[in-house]
Amino acid sequence: MNTLLTTLTAVFAGIGRAQFFLINVLAALPAALTRPRILAQQVHSVGVMSLIIVVLSGSFVGMVLALQGFRTLVRFGAEESLGVFVALVIVRELGPVVTALLVAGRAGSALAAEIGLMKATDQLSAMEMMATDPLKRVIAPRFLAMLISMPLLSAIFSVMAIGIAGGHAVGVSLLGVDDGSYWGQIRASVEVQDIVDSLIKSTLFGFAVAWIAVYQGYHAAPTSEGVSRATTSTVVLSSLAILALDFVLTAFMFR
């Protein structure tokens, strides 16, 4: 009972610390904009480095969706609606969610490990002693890069999944759905609001992943064990946060 209480207190303390940390990071964000070179470097390591995995995953997810959707739709003689099925599932759900999970695993963990290592090797302390705020120089650019990259990656994922590399390839080229009705049905059913919601979702996922990753890295125990623990908990917590947040956002957006 006592240990439960201690654990609970520790959890609340952690959440509280994360809040204060977030406020400090947000306050440092404008400083990140005044250093475009560092920001570009971080967009490279978060966004560009995740590009290949996102493009490949997007294509495969689109293909699988088209195969599965076709099997079901053909029973109702509604295989012409394949495009709508793929497009709505991708734009509303899988695009933002799968992208966020991939980026959390690929870039979020790397962020936490990098920051944790900088802490363990006194680099953050050294910056502080050189009168440079590590929140502005190290944390804020990485946070912002994640926030910028996530919606862009999610949009690329969606285009790959719906387009000629994914669902379209399987549906039109392989299963013989008419090209015109594939796109026509999509355009008739997908609203601009769906795209906007999708981008909002992925931006918020980016926010969550960035927050968790930089917090875990910055507050890692300054040992190799601490860094590896920060990396693992970044992936676990980010994934949980993405899925939970997705439920809440979906409930709000598609009432």
Binding site: L117, M118, T121, D122, Q123, A126, M127, M129, M130, A131
Partner: peptide
């Protein structure tokens, strides 16, 4: 405080160079 730190230099145990 940050202005004051510019008048100090510190050499960390392992150098703490930015990797």
């Amino acid at each position: 405080l940050y202005a004051l730190r510019r008048r100090m230099g510190m050499l960390f145990q392992h150098g703490a160079l930015l990797t």
